[in-house]
Computed example of a mutant assay.
Amino acid sequence: MSATSAPFGEATDAKYIELTTFRKDGTPKPTPIWAALDDDGRLVVWTEAESWKVKRLRNNPRVTVQACDARGKKTHGAVVEGTAEILDAAGTEHARRLIGRKYGLLGKLLVKASVIRRGKSGTVGIAITAVDPA
């Protein structure tokens, strides 16, 4: 899928995206992270189950995404509004596979190492759906 036809713009195919979650007071908290597009047109990411971004998403599913560099310092492309959903075990496993497929050997190794280190319940997948601006 090309970035121009996807609801996430340049973030669709970017190596890193800046995922911004929001504190209870509305303060944005951006994080650079890997993401892959699933067959339903959602961006999926994979992260530690007890990370702050997951805790913030439990309070507020609103997010923004934008293509960025590995450190999240240089963003490019449009900022896309979305809603995020924390995935169940099957969805998380699907997110792990998509990350492994997109990021090749490094992605597969990091996913496997994380499962060994934290167990399967130590990480979760997050699915992001773009919000139509209209």
Results as ranks from 00 to 15, higher is better:
Ser2Glu: 11
Ser2Gly: 15
Ser2Leu: 13
Ala3Leu: 06
Ala3Ile: 05
Ala3Val: 05
Thr4Glu: 13
Thr4Ser: 04
Ser5Pro: 11
Ala6Asn: 15
Ala6Phe: 07
Ala6Ser: 15
Ala6Thr: 10
Ala6Lys: 03
Pro7Ser: 10
Pro7Ile: 04
Pro7His: 09
Pro7Tyr: 07
Phe8Ile: 09
Phe8Met: 04
Phe8Tyr: 02
Phe8Lys: 02
Gly9His: 03
Gly9Pro: 09
Gly9Arg: 02
Glu10Lys: 14
Glu10Ile: 11
Glu10Thr: 09
Glu10Arg: 14
Ala11Val: 01
Ala11Tyr: 03
Ala11Leu: 01
Thr12Gly: 13
Thr12Pro: 09
Thr12Asn: 13
Thr12Ser: 13
Thr12Asp: 12
Asp13Ser: 15
Asp13Ile: 06
Ala14Thr: 04
Ala14Lys: 10
Lys15Met: 05
Tyr16Phe: 14
Tyr16Thr: 05
Tyr16Glu: 10
Tyr16Arg: 03
Ile17Lys: 13
Ile17Gly: 12
Ile17Ser: 11
Glu18Gly: 12
Glu18Thr: 06
Glu18Lys: 14
Glu18Cys: 06
Leu19Val: 05
Thr20Asp: 07
Thr20Trp: 04
Thr20Met: 01
Thr21Pro: 07
Thr21Leu: 09
Phe22Pro: 00
Phe22Gln: 03
Phe22Cys: 05
Phe22Arg: 02
Arg23Asn: 09
Arg23Gly: 07
Arg23Pro: 03
Arg23Asp: 09
Arg23Ser: 10
Arg23Val: 02
Lys24Glu: 15
Lys24Tyr: 01
Asp25Lys: 00
Asp25Met: 04
Asp25Ser: 07
Asp25Asn: 02
Gly26Arg: 08
Gly26Cys: 02
Gly26Gln: 12
Gly26Ile: 09
Gly26Thr: 08
Thr27Phe: 02
Thr27Val: 10
Thr27Lys: 12
Thr27Gly: 04
Pro28Gly: 02
Pro28Lys: 00
Lys29Gln: 08
Lys29Trp: 01
Pro30Arg: 01
Pro30Lys: 00
Pro30Gly: 00
Pro30Asp: 00
Pro30Phe: 01
Thr31Asp: 09
Thr31His: 13
Thr31Trp: 15
Thr31Val: 15
Pro32Gln: 06
Pro32Ile: 01
Pro32Thr: 02
Pro32Asn: 10
Pro32Tyr: 06
